[in-house]
């Protein structure tokens, strides 16, 4: 007998994204580490520039970068499930970005170079990207090593 999961009472089908389950645990783990590495590298690049997004932003950016380095090392060396920590880094990076909106964010129209503005925006895009991946991980759409979708059929 066919048994469908995630179908709410009174509905015929499950929510659309429940149908998608990707089982590439090692690739997903590497992708998550890569995204956090991008957040860290972009934060470092902004911290090294002469255009801090707001007063005292530089130490915070370095803190995000440092956390990303520790996260990357943990992810590569151990098999720990550190994804919530990564979400913390992404949220911290987002808060810095929003702080920049209230301050003097390095946009082109604020006098920053195109490269710096692009790097600054990468902190936003990569953070959002990580949070989307983190949500997909929690939802069951993707899975990161050492976990597995455990497909039986």
């Amino acid at each position: 007998m066919r048994v469908s999961e995630h179908v709410r009472p009174g509905r015929k089908r499950a929510p659309l994204l429940r149908y998608v389950r990707i089982n590439l645990p090692r690739a997903t783990r590497l992708l998550l580490l890569l995204v956090v590495a991008v957040i860290g590298a972009a934060s470092a690049a902004v911290a090294l520039s002469d255009h801090p997004p707001f007063a005292f932003a530089t130490p915070i950016l370095w803190a995000v970068c440092g956390a990303a380095v520790v996260f990357g090392a943990m992810g590569l060396v151990t098999s720990a499930r550190i994804w919530a920590w990564g979400a913390g880094i992404a949220v911290a990076s987002l808060l810095v970005y929003f702080g920049g909106l209230a301050g003097d964010a390095p946009y082109v129209w604020n006098g920053a170079s195109v490269v710096l503005a692009a790097t600054w925006n990468v902190t936003l895009l990569a953070s959002i990207g990580y949070l989307v991946l983190f949500w997909a991980l929690r939802y069951g759409t993707i899975v990161a090593a050492p976990d597995d979708q455990n497909f039986m059929d």
Binding site: E5, H6, R13, R18, N23, L24, D153
Partner: peptide
């Protein structure tokens, strides 16, 4: 069995040892 890299179904894996491929389909909207 068990080696798919992606699945697009909410069907629970059949518990029978033998199940036909005819029961594999999912009912998309």
């Amino acid at each position: 069995a068990g080696t798919a890299w992606a699945q697009f179904t909410v069907q629970r894996a059949p518990k029978h040892k033998y199940y036909t491929v005819g029961g594999e389909y999912d009912d998309y909207s």
